[in-house]
């Protein structure tokens, strides 16, 4: 199934990027984007998920928002692989500014530099951000 198709036999697969820039529990953005990503996985597009600025806190290990009586959706990022979403990127500078390293993250990611991230964004058909 595809979102749209032109007249040729092959449906057009678009390059999508979801940009996460917000920390996870203070606002609803992180959870909303995550749900959008899980739904978009059904449409078999070329999905790229990026974490930069405070967005890198979304995938920090050891979160326990149950003490705030909130759902621990950090566990849900680990389901992304099963949903076929394998292109996950973290911006190196954002991670380092926040004193984090790859070992602090809950899922395996590809670490890329700021410039590379900009170029990757430029190569997308659609960018969605929060």
């Amino acid at each position: 199934m595809s979102v749209e198709s032109d007249n040729s036999a092959e449906p057009k697969v678009k390059r999508f990027m979801y940009v996460n820039r917000k920390a996870p529990h203070g606002t609803v953005y992180a959870l909303e984007v995550l749900e959008m990503v899980l739904i978009s996985a059904m449409f078999e597009q070329d999905v790229h998920l990026t974490f930069l600025d405070d967005g890198v806190f979304q995938i920090k290990k050891g979160q326990n928002p149950s003490v705030l009586e909130m759902k621990d959706f950090s566990k849900t990022y680990r389901a992304l692989d099963g949903y076929g979403i394998e292109k996950v990127f973290v911006e190196k500078e954002s991670m380092e500014e926040r004193g984090l390293s790859q070992d602090d993250l809950i899922i395996p990611v590809e670490i890329i530099g700021r410039e590379e991230l900009g170029a990757l964004m430029e190569s997308m058909d659609v960018v969605l951000s929060a």
């Binding site: 899980l38 996985a41 059904m42 759902k71 621990d72 849900t76 389901a79 099963g82």
Partner: peptide
């Protein structure tokens, strides 16, 4: 328990 979501059918069958 592991992922905090109910899986979509395609994901369920795969798992």
């Amino acid at each position: 328990t592991e992922y905090q979501i109910a899986p979509a059918i395609r994901v369920l069958t795969k798992a």
